[in-house]
């Protein structure tokens, strides 16, 4: 638990903490506040109800078809089977490959994230530190476009990729996620809080703008970069509408699309296989959440700004 005095030495961290929810906020209570057994019970029952659909899917992924849809079924798999997972890996001639779509999802989400981090931090640095004519008006234009929902440009954006001959390619899946106005907004705000003395000192030592960006700003803005990375990765990993429109061939499907393909291919014969594909698609983000709760929670709270 970080104490108040510790925080004061790191203005950046304090800024970050002030605008994000404290995940484990025991410090807000008087030390030794008694725990509430009845409320805990209520909360646990609610949490179980919340987790139940996910647990059903998880156990279902290890059941045979009739143990899932038949009349005499049980919550736990009485005869656990790995057949569903085998179906996923070896689709027996069906045009769906979970391995391929998992790979696609990883490629798309990773490249989107890397691109968004580079583009947003460079632009954020320019808006925060480098004077150029029209900087203020341009930033206002950016904020204005943030209000326009992605759905509004769905059709013209599709036409643009069509014109460029990029439909059904990785660039089509990646490029829209790289251009993150929210990311620039976030980075600009964070960089403005970096003490100017640091870049002034570096400038006197003869550093140019690139060196200041690369050697001073980037390392100091790591918390903001991490928040943005989680945000962009999750968005790209979970995106459904845009891939639905630009992906044509089965080989380019990302996981959210592949799940729907699996649903139509298997739901009548092997419901367990559909459920296994769901487990596969939701496990990476959930696992990441387990290991980096604070970071994910900051990202979710920031994501709201996108509207």
């Amino acid at each position: 638990m970080s104490s108040a005095t510790e925080r004061q030495e790191y203005p950046l961290e304090r800024e970050q903490a002030a605008t994000s929810p404290q995940w484990e906020a025991g410090r807000r209570f008087r030390v030794g506040a008694p725990e509430r057994p009845v409320l805990t019970l209520v909360a646990v029952i609610l949490a179980l109800a919340w987790a139940l659909p996910l647990l059903w899917v998880l156990t279902g992924a290890f059941k045979g078809h009739f143990d899932i849809v038949g009349p005499n079924r049980h919550f736990l798999p009485l005869e656990p089977t790995l057949q569903n997972w085998q179906n996923l890996v070896d689709p027996q001639g069906r045009a769906v490959s979970i391995l391929r779509s998992s790979l696609n999802s990883f490629i798309v989400a990773s490249i989107s994230t890397a691109g968004a981090l580079i583009i947003s931090s460079m632009a954020g640095y320019a808006f925060a530190r480098l004077p150029f004519p029209g900087r203020g008006p341009l930033f206002i234009v950016l904020l204005g476009t943030m209000m326009i929902p992605f759905e509004v440009i769905l059709v013209p954006l599709f036409l643009q990729f069509h014109r460029l001959g990029l439909l059904d390619t990785y660039p089509a899946l990646v490029l829209p996620h790289m251009v993150s106005v929210l990311g620039i907004f976030l980075m600009r705000q964070f960089i403005q809080n970096v003490p100017r003395d640091l870049d002034e000192a570096a400038r006197i030592d003869g550093a140019n703008a690139w060196q200041i960006y690369y050697q001073i700003i980037l390392p100091l803005t790591r918390p903001a970069l991490a928040t943005l990375a989680v945000f962009v990765f999750l968005e790209a990993w979970n995106d459904f509408l845009w891939p639905l429109i630009v992906v044509g061939s089965p080989g380019m499907q990302t996981l959210p699309l592949a799940l729907i393909t699996f649903r139509s291919a298997y739901s009548d014969l092997d419901y367990g296989t559909v459920l296994a594909s769901v487990v596969l698609a939701v496990t990476p983000p959930l696992l990441f959440f387990v290991f980096a709760q604070r970071l994910v929670i900051q990202s979710i709270s920031r994501a709201g700004l996108k509207g």
């Binding site: 999750l234 699309l257 649903r263």
Partner: peptide, 29 residues
């Protein structure tokens, strides 16, 4: 002040991280 509060909170946040098509299949199920 609940027992295991962080864990309980995480359960309610977890579905937020799931893709829409998975949500659809889970709830049809």
């Amino acid at each position: 002040p609940l027992t295991a509060r962080a864990g309980i909170r995480a359960v309610f946040v977890a579905p937020y991280l799931i893709t829409g098509s998975a949500v659809a299949i889970i709830w049809q199920f």
